[in-house]
Amino acid sequence: MPEVAMLYYEYQYNPKVKITGDQVVEVRVEDCMIKAVKLIRKKMQQEICSRGLAIETNPSSNYLIGTFRRYDRHPIVNWYNYGLTCNQEEVENCPQLQVSINTDDQGVFTTYIENEYAYLALALEKYKDENGKYRYNKTMILQWLDNIRKMGINQSFR
């Protein structure tokens, strides 16, 4: 397609396009819009859960092309936290979606499945709350990851 070829050429060889592409543009979003998006997200998660759908996560890929810069902030913790925390309110407020940890294109992201689990485990183990206390227990992190591993196996054989 000529349009794609032109865009590729412009991005690779036109310095003005590269400069423009590197610029960060901030847009102020009204609080009511943020609230609306959160409500929609919660409704979508309920729908995903009710249908028994599974969410595949690729932590390294998500980190490199996503909006979070720390593995302990990966959204998987907000989708499934059963066993990761003893706080009953946090467990009840989490949708407890079926999730799995996977790798994305190994050639691009140079990672292995073992790394994906290790990155999350290490990040959660080192994560401290606002008071400087460790947020998660190592044994609970490992059990949580094992639960996710089992979910992944079950998802692949459905």
Rank of each mutant, 00 (worst) to 15 (best):
residue 125 E to S: 06
residue 136 Y to H: 12
residue 129 D to G: 04
residue 150 K to A: 03
residue 45 Q to A: 09
residue 136 Y to I: 01
residue 66 G to W: 06
residue 140 M to N: 12
residue 62 N to P: 01
residue 47 E to V: 09
residue 44 M to G: 00
residue 64 L to I: 12
residue 120 L to A: 01
residue 115 N to T: 14
residue 37 V to A: 15
residue 146 D to F: 07
residue 112 Y to K: 08
residue 114 E to I: 05
residue 54 A to P: 03
residue 1 M to W: 12
residue 59 P to W: 01
residue 72 D to K: 07
residue 26 E to A: 08
residue 36 A to N: 08
residue 67 T to E: 13
residue 47 E to W: 10
residue 32 C to K: 08
residue 67 T to I: 02
residue 19 I to L: 12
residue 126 K to Q: 12
residue 78 N to G: 09
residue 54 A to W: 06
residue 4 V to N: 06
residue 152 G to M: 03
residue 106 Q to Y: 04
residue 15 P to H: 14
residue 116 E to K: 00
residue 125 E to Y: 06
residue 8 Y to V: 14
residue 14 N to T: 09
residue 9 Y to C: 13
residue 135 R to E: 10
residue 40 I to M: 11
residue 105 D to N: 11
residue 48 I to C: 05
residue 142 L to Q: 09
residue 15 P to Q: 10
residue 37 V to H: 10
residue 153 I to M: 09
residue 15 P to R: 15
residue 146 D to R: 09
residue 78 N to L: 06
residue 13 Y to N: 15
residue 145 L to E: 01
residue 3 E to A: 11
residue 146 D to A: 08
residue 18 K to L: 13
residue 97 L to A: 05
residue 114 E to T: 14
residue 87 N to V: 05
residue 92 E to H: 07
residue 21 G to T: 08
residue 66 G to C: 01
residue 125 E to G: 01
residue 143 Q to V: 09
residue 52 G to Y: 13
residue 6 M to T: 10
residue 10 E to L: 15
residue 153 I to Q: 06
residue 149 R to N: 06
residue 26 E to Q: 12
residue 68 F to A: 05
residue 19 I to F: 03
residue 145 L to Y: 00
residue 73 R to T: 04
residue 30 E to Q: 10
residue 47 E to F: 13
residue 143 Q to R: 10
residue 16 K to P: 02
residue 4 V to E: 14
residue 90 E to D: 12
residue 117 Y to Q: 06
residue 65 I to V: 15
residue 116 E to W: 00
residue 130 E to P: 00
residue 107 G to H: 08
residue 34 I to C: 05
residue 138 K to R: 10
residue 157 F to D: 07
residue 85 T to V: 04
residue 30 E to A: 15
residue 123 A to V: 02
residue 119 Y to I: 04
residue 60 S to K: 13
residue 146 D to E: 15
residue 137 N to A: 04
residue 66 G to Q: 06
residue 99 V to C: 12
